[in-house]
């Protein structure tokens, strides 16, 4: 187990290293940051001085080595805009996004999982067809549009819910639902199809044949097996939500890290963009590791030597 953890941690570090290198190379290809950074009326000499201040006058390989050395120490540079450490800015906003995303994911699992099971055990009945159609509807509606529709209905017309910020539980309802709708639909579809696969297997027939209650067959035997792929997908969705709540944070004016990254993208604030991508890469790696460890808890056949 310890050995496994060690290997996985090394793999994670290597993945982050690869991502960092790719970002560095990618940014070299996208042009001179000075074009956006320097005010229009700056003289040539002032631009050069600014360039030196950020170390952008050095040869590329020196910039790369410095970038990597700093990264190893958790230093991702100073925001071009605010002058504060880029990583600190992102991490400061991290809990806001985390709270929102966790709420959304809990909602998605709470609805998607039971609905998927219900659709599977009632396969090809009317209620299954309705649930399936609703789920296609759910993955077809654009997230940004759903958010706007909610604001139109609940803030503009009914005046029931606040449309921006996250200062009370009421503030969470619309953004969390906006984020979770697609996932509810996705989980429903996924759980339904894996449950159907499992329910057609021999050990389920055996369980039924030995007279177990249908409830026990479905929830104890079938669901437990269907949960394994579900955990992978849910884990992946957690990562995708953390790095993909941009639209929701923009529409509902939520001061999360995606919003910060989007503003940094608009203003070409590269250290903040890099810090965001690195944080996301680390997050993805950690989520993957947790998912793999959870396997062992749910599936006794999996043991990490």
């Amino acid at each position: 187990m310890l050995r496994y953890l060690f290997v996985r941690t090394a793999q994670t570090a290597f993945a982050v290293f690869t991502v960092a290198t790719l970002i560095f190379l990618g940014l070299q290809l996208t042009g001179d940051p000075m074009e956006n950074l320097a005010p229009q009326d700056m003289s040539e000499a002032q631009v050069e001085e600014l360039r030196r201040a950020y170390g952008l006058d050095r040869p590329v390989h020196v910039q790369y080595l410095r970038f990597m050395a700093h990264l190893a120490r958790g230093d991702l540079g100073i925001s071009f805009l605010s002058g504060e450490p880029a990583l600190g800015l992102i991490l400061e906003r991290f809990p806001t996004t985390l709270k929102l995303v966790t709420t959304a994911l809990v909602i998605a699992i709470a609805f998607g999982l039971p609905m998927g099971v219900a659709a599977a055990i009632r396969a090809d009945t009317m209620s299954d067809r309705v649930l399936r159609f609703l789920s296609v509807l759910g993955i077809s509606a654009p997230t940004f549009w759903i958010g706007i529709m909610l604001i139109l209905i609940f803030s503009v017309n009914l005046g029931w819910l606040p449309s921006s910020g996250l200062s009370s539980w009421k503030h969470y309802l619309m953004p969390a639902f906006t984020l979770s709708l697609y996932r509810i639909a996705l989980f429903l579809r996924m759980v339904r199809s894996t449950m159907l696969d499992v329910l057609n297997q021999d050990f389920i027939r055996t369980a039924r044949a030995k007279g177990l209650a249908e409830r026990v067959v479905v929830y104890k035997h079938a669901l437990r097996n269907a949960l394994i792929p579900f955990i992978t997908v849910a884990g992946l969705q957690f990562g995708h939500l953390m790095a993909g709540a941009v639209v929701t944070e923009k529409i509902f004016a939520i001061p999360g890290m995606n919003r910060l990254a989007l503003d940094a993208l608009y203003s070409d604030d590269r250290p903040v963009i890099i810090a965001f991508i690195i944080v996301v890469a680390v997050l993805f790696a950690v989520v993957n590791l947790l998912v793999d460890l959870l396997y062992a808890v749910i599936d006794p056949r999996v043991r990490y030597a």
Binding site: V19, T30, A243, L265, I277, A281, F284
Partner: peptide, 11 residues
């Protein structure tokens, strides 16, 4: 390993 959306957005 990287979401398409993020890569497209950044690029």
């Amino acid at each position: 390993a990287v979401p398409t959306f993020l890569v497209a957005l950044v690029v």
